[in-house]
Design a protein around this nucleic acid. Sequence first.
DNA 1: GCAAAAGTGTTTACCCTACACCCATGT
DNA 2: ACATGGGTGTAGGGTAAACACTTTTGC
Lengths: 241, 241
Amino acid sequence: MHLPSEQDYIQQVSIDCVIFGYQETQLKVLVPKLAFKGDFWALPSGFILQQEGTDQAARRILEGRTGIKNIYLEQFRVFGDAGRTSAPFLERLIELNQESSREKQFNRKEFEWMTRRFISIGYYALVDINEVVPNKHDIDESIEWYNIKSLPTMIMDHNQIVEQALETLRSNLDKKLIAFNLLPETFTMMEVQQLYEAIFDKPFARNNFQKKILDLNVLERLEKKFTGAANKAPYLYRFLK
Amino acid sequence: MHLPSEQDYIQQVSIDCVIFGYQETQLKVLVPKLAFKGDFWALPSGFILQQEGTDQAARRILEGRTGIKNIYLEQFRVFGDAGRTSAPFLERLIELNQESSREKQFNRKEFEWMTRRFISIGYYALVDINEVVPNKHDIDESIEWYNIKSLPTMIMDHNQIVEQALETLRSNLDKKLIAFNLLPETFTMMEVQQLYEAIFDKPFARNNFQKKILDLNVLERLEKKFTGAANKAPYLYRFLK
DNA sequence: GCAAAAGTGTTTACCCTACACCCATGT
DNA sequence: ACATGGGTGTAGGGTAAACACTTTTGC
């Protein structure tokens, strides 16, 4: 990771991204784990270049982690408390990694820059999990999809940021018709329903759900999907536009 | 106005406030006009001190304009386009005010600071218009309530910011029960209805509206209000909690 | 008593839910 | 044929809009 200690970036403003994916009836979030002792997880984040808009910056950060260019994203909240700084986390990290050679990469100036108070703009993104090739940065030990219901404890306020993102996702899901970003090109109605159930963490009635979704008039019915199972083959659907 | 050219403030981040008030069946916005030739209107705005949160900063800015301490406010959006700068506006202002003595107050360094690209956090506030004592800053020629439907053309993207604020207000009005912030301590049902009609710019049915509002169970019915008019006296209500 | 405007009740329509039934598919 | 799961139709309940009527107030 390029350490942004100069004026290329807007000072004291960061972007934190909650990347939602969906797989096997579970809503998931893509979270990197830092390559330091101490088990630190942190949301994908970054800074805003002087010549790019906040949305562009989020897109750049998201593409860097998922490889996806045309990603669905939305800004959902600013986290700007006065005491919002990564200093406690960084101190703990350094304390636990004193013997490590990595500590040397923090020089005093960079450390000072990174521990200042930061205002963070929260973005959430919805991706087809099958299209994502999670990209581990140098600083990461791993980057993985975590079930939303069993996320690790992350640094700073990142767990709260995910909470807020999920809340916004829920309230935007119906009015903005964005759920289909989490599904592959074609899908069955049952898959849509299970996705909704994962997001809202509650069951829906099968027939009524189908009616509700089809009444949106945004789905095109395709051929049936023969799975080999001993039951009626479900139709495949495609999201229009 | 203290020109914030030092490190007291977070660089390149501003706060723009849309202050909503309500009077005589009209939804209004409090907008200062700058004391320069050229008719420049600009939303109340300011910057974030290093030691204060964004909400606190918005509160400070809002109190400075309205005199109200316990103001209802909500962050609603970040405006962070790459080209978002006040440079064109400031150049036009200076061009139109060359002969004025005021131009001298812009020294080169301050001008450079103010024309950088700024990310703005949009806040909207709801106030009882009767409690507000609009406070004109030194830099202002006036500060006035403008009908939302006949706002002046403001600088930069400020008209769009108001649009966004209104949109958010509409979608939050029911679920957050915030409309009563715009009314005085006691009010009649008709006043609530007219407020809703002003916000949504559409009529509501009288009896159904009353039922809907009373079913919220947040209003206390007080004595009747005798206006002297030749008709049944309406009840007064007070918002609970 | 009457006009004006507030309060309240009633009917209607619509939408969401629940229940039921039918259909296709592979063993 | 039958079990499994998908598709569709219909009746019930609750909510909200539309309509109607009653009450209060000052002249």
